[in-house]
Nucleic acid binder design. Structure first.
Lengths: 201, 201
DNA sequence: TAGATTGTTAATCGATTAACAATC
DNA sequence: TAGATTGTTAATCGATTAACAATC
């Protein structure tokens, strides 16, 4: 049922962004309009939409609200996804404030840091806790996902500790490749690579 | 000469991260080691490396320093790439502080914002300028790349202005799809999509 | 009606994997 | 030597594009 590739996921989130703003303007949208905005082939757009189980209307296109809802359903925007941020530096703190997360069901519970100065401070209503409390927090509320936003030189060390604490998914914002056991998944948020790709365009 | 795909660019930056930290430890690295760390097929790694024009040594692998240098060369890390950030909120400010940018030749010159409170403030040594000065700045020093880090609801409006000012590349950190002329390239830094992909793993 | 647009199949293109001879 | 590892070709797999009949 869920054999939906990362490329499709990526495009669906972009379609969703379009629909969010289209809603106010019109009831229907065609695969041609979406394709134009994103420089895609229109039949690719139709195929992606078909994967969401939405049927279009000849001559009119797709219902904006229906399609938007179907994408949310398919990608699970309404399921609550809890996550910790490790590293309360500028990037970590910016991510807590990233208001758009909540629209997608992503719920940041707390930040962890090793800097005594930062402990117990509050960022956007979330507490900064000492890293030593990670193990306890994880076993208590069983959150297995973390955003890693520490300096690259500490990335491996912090990862080792997080894995020891029971973390299973690491969303890695540092420019470091992490050694982890096979049971742990690392997703590389490769900002630098994005920039290099952009230059290539 | 430069028919190198985005997927290859993405992997090369990850290889580079590995090499940076491997340098202290050993002189050579094999395609098997790199492949293991990233969960890739080892022949894919060898193919990518071949694209950089690096020859390996039978039984030993690749010279770490040589390979690292070749990737830097291929991806143009040493070419200076100037960019403005538009939006001096928490994300924009975090990006100015993202120390790793300079290792890749990315040079953030200034931030622009519309909030009078922020104007003339200093973030990490870079001035926050009023958005109205963008046009002048662009024509004066001919920087055509921007990072867009404004709230999603202003993304289109700010984009229209930036395009009018002569911007050609937009690295879009907002969850909004932008309407731009064909001559302008938008690169979507799709953080939400990354998260959804991660869940899928 | 004529035109626009879908849904889907077949064709193409590109990327990954498997395999293996060469050789240090 | 035997084993490890490269470099490369051929096979496979997956994703995109082209094309077009169906139809509102």
């Amino acid at each position: 049922m869920n054999e939906i590739s990362n490329k499709v996921i990526n495009r669906l989130t972009l379609y969703h962004c379009i629909l969010k703003y289209t809603m106010k303007e019109s009831e229907f949208i065609s695969s041609f309009e979406i394709a134009d905005l994103l420089n895609l082939d229109n039949s690719l757009v139709r195929k992606d939409i078909a994967l969401c189980g939405v049927l279009g209307h000849k001559k009119q296109g797709y219902s904006v609200t229906e399609l938007k809802g179907a994408i949310e359903e398919k990608l699970g925007f309404s399921e609550r996804k809890e996550i910790f941020i490790i590293g309360a530096g500028s990037l970590g703190s910016a991510l807590v404030k990233y208001v758009d997360f909540k629209d997608y069901g992503i719920d940041i519970l707390a930040l962890f840091d090793n800097d005594p100065q930062k402990i117990e401070q509050d960022v956007n209503g979330k507490k900064i806790l000492p890293l030593s409390k990670l193990e306890n927090s994880i076993s208590r509320i069983s959150v297995k996902n973390i955003i890693l936003a520490v300096p690259a030189e500490h990335a491996q060390e912090v990862t080792d500790y997080a894995v020891h604490c029971g973390v299973r998914f690491i969303w890695n914002f540092t420019p470091a490749v992490l050694r982890v056991p096979k049971s742990v998944t690392v997703y590389y948020e490769n900002i630098i690579s994005s920039f290099m790709q952009m230059r290539n365009a």
